[in-house]
């Protein structure tokens, strides 16, 4: 099938996603990822810590672990859809970062992303595909933050590439 042989134009892909996101906005809410990831973190922490988790107020006042939280399933759907796409296009294979420096960068990057999402209540998806199109003030604040952050991150990345 042609779809699985050629790379799709990202403009077409994102235009389709945007139209579907409008339907999501009407049915349950705009596309977002960070909320689902936070709930997964809470569920994982609950599985490990049990009732001890209640001693951390965040997990009772902000995000009470709930497996029925719909945003979790957007993330799981993305994982499944990407897996199907990769298998059908024969692009699925295990890839590992080759250098220790890559593992370190990914670790720091992941920690900053997780911390940043919860501090801001939003991730990049909510910023560009939810808040800003809703003309929420938070979208403009978040865009100014993410552009500044990407710029600083790019400078660091460039230094590392040059080294």
């Amino acid at each position: 099938m042609e779809f699985f042989r050629k790379t799709l134009d990202p403009v077409i892909a994102l235009a389709i996603i945007a139209v579907l996101d409008i339907f999501m906005f009407l049915i349950i809410g705009a596309w977002t990822v960070g909320g689902g990831e936070t709930m997964m973190t809470g569920l994982a922490a609950q599985a490990v810590l049990g009732d001890e988790l209640e001693r951390i107020p965040f997990w009772t006042l902000v995000f009470e672990p709930d497996a029925g939280y719909w945003k979790i399933y957007i993330s799981l759907g993305m994982l499944f859809g990407a897996f199907v796409g990769a298998v059908l296009s024969k692009e699925f294979y295990l890839r590992f970062p080759r250098h220790l420096s890559e593992w370190v960068l990914i670790t720091i990057g992941g920690l900053l992303m997780g911390f940043g999402i919860r501090l801001a209540f939003v991730c990049n998806v909510s910023t560009f595909f939810g808040l800003t199109p809703e003309m929420n003030l938070g979208g403009y604040l978040a865009i100014s933050g993410i552009i500044a952050g990407a710029w600083v991150g790019s400078l660091i990345y460039k230094k590392i590439l040059e080294a």
């Binding site: 998806v125 978040a142 990407a150 600083v152």
Partner: peptide, 20 residues
């Protein structure tokens, strides 16, 4: 929102990937 996404922006470039 500004500080959180600033940290996120650095993190996504270092990790080479965003949430999606």
């Amino acid at each position: 929102q500004v500080v959180g996404l600033f940290l996120f922006g650095i993190g996504m470039v270092l990790a080479g990937a965003c949430t999606v």
